[in-house]
Design a protein around this nucleic acid. Structure first.
Length: 281
DNA sequence: CGCCAAGTCCGGGAGC
DNA sequence: TGCTCCCGGACTTGGC
C-alpha cells in the first residue's frame, strides 16, 4: 500500500542506488506490467539509457532516461530491489533492469497490479494520469483556499474526495484516515459543506502526518520495503488506522472500523463528530 | 472456503 | 438535455 510517504522513501533509495547507472538490458518477464509501448519496444528503447534522475509525482515514480521517462506505479504491493546479477531471482520478479556493473534493479509484485509506462519526455503532458493530478500535500500552494475551490461542487464524503488524486496527489486509505483523525473530522462529512476552518485543519493535518511519515520512512503494514529492502516505522506511529477495538489515543473511547467510499475506514466517533446522514455513527 | 485488502480505471446511473 | 459527479465492480493473489 505504498502511498506518498512510501513512494518518496523508495524514490530516495533508488536515487542513491541507480542515478548515473547505464541500463545494459531490460528483461520483461510478466507482460501485463508494461502498459506502453509494447514490451519489445519497451526493452529496446531502454537499452543503453542512463538513469539521470529519479523523481516522484503523487504515487508515481519517474525515471529520467534522457530522451524518455519511465513512469512506474507500485499500486499495492509493487517493490524494487537491488541485487547482484548472480543473485537468485525471487518469486514475483516481473521486470529486471540489468546494469553494466553486474547489478540488477528488480521489480517484484505479488499482486501483479503495478504498471510501467515508457514515453518520450515531450509527451509527458499527454499522460493523463499524471497531468490530471492535484497538488502535493506538501506543496506551499496546498491551502484551505485551494481545497475550498476544489471541493466546491463535491457532494461525496470528504474521505472519497481526499482519495481522489486529482484533488490531492499521493494520499491513500491509510493516510486519509490518519489525516481525518488528526483534523477531528468525520470521513462522511460532505466535502462541499466543510468550512474554511475545517479545511485548514485538514491542510495542517496533512502536512503534519505526511511529513512525519516520510521522516519515519513510511508505514510497513504488510509488505512494503524501500529499495534497500528496509521497512519503514510509521506503522508504530499510526493513531487510528488498524486500531479498531483499541482505545483512542486522544480521548480513550473505542476506535471503530466501518466502510466509507468502499474502503475500510477507522474513526473515533467521539473525536470525529458524525453528520446526520452518516452510516458510521 | 470464501471473503478481504489495496489503487485505479471504467461503466452505469444518479443528480444538478 | 447534457454534463458532472458518485459508486461499485474488475483486476490479482495471498492470508485469515
Amino acid at each position: 500500500m505504498p502511498e506518498l510517504p512510501e513512494v518518496e522513501t523508495v524514490r530516495r533509495s533508488l536515487e542513491t542506488l541507480t542515478v548515473g547507472r547505464r541500463i545494459d538490458r531490460v528483461d520483461v518477464r510478466l507482460l501485463r506490467i508494461v502498459r506502453r509501448p509494447n514490451p519489445v519496444e519497451f526493452m529496446a528503447r531502454m537499452q543503453g539509457a542512463r538513469i539521470e534522475a529519479v523523481s516522484r509525482r503523487g504515487k508515481y515514480l519517474l525515471f529520467d532516461l534522457g530522451h524518455d521517462v519511465l513512469i512506474v506505479h507500485l499500486r499495492m504491493e509493487g517493490r524494487f530491489g537491488f541485487y547482484a546479477a548472480a543473485d537468485p531471482i525471487l518469486m514475483h520478479t516481473h521486470v529486471i533492469f540489468h546494469f553494466k556493473e553486474d547489478m540488477d534493479l528488480r521489480y517484484q509484485d505479488v499482486r501483479q497490479f503495478g504498471t510501467m509506462d515508457l514515453l518520450a519526455k515531450s509527451d509527458l503532458e499527454k499522460f493523463i494520469p499524471l497531468s490530471s493530478l492535484g497538488l502535493e500535500p506538501l506543496d506551499a500552494h496546498f491551502t484551505s483556499a485551494y481545497l475550498k475551490e476544489k471541493l466546491r461542487t463535491r457532494r461525496a464524503p470528504i474521505k472519497a474526495v481526499l482519495l481522489d488524486q486529482s484533488v490531492v496527489a499521493g494520499l491513500g486509505n491509510i493516510y486519509v484516515d490518519e489525516i481525518l483523525f488528526a483534523a477531528q473530522i468525520h470521513p462522511e462529512r460532505m466535502a462541499s459543506k466543510l468550512s474554511m476552518k475545517d479545511l485548514t485543519r485538514i491542510v495542517d493535518a496533512s502536512v503534519e502526518v505526511i511529513q512525519h511519515a516520510i521522516q519515519l520512512g513510511g508505514s510497513s503494514i504488510k509488505s512494503y520495503v524501500n529499495g534497500y529492502g528496509q521497512p519503514g516505522s510509521f506503522q508504530y506511529a499510526l493513531r487510528v488506522y488498524g486500531r479498531q477495538g483499541q482505545a483512542c489515543l486522544r480521548c480513550g473511547s473505542t476506535i471503530y472500523k466501518g466502510r466509507v467510499a468502499g474502503r475500510g475506514t477507522h474513526v473515533c466517533l467521539s473525536c470525529q463528530k458524525a453528520p446526520r446522514a452518516a452510516t458510521i455513527r
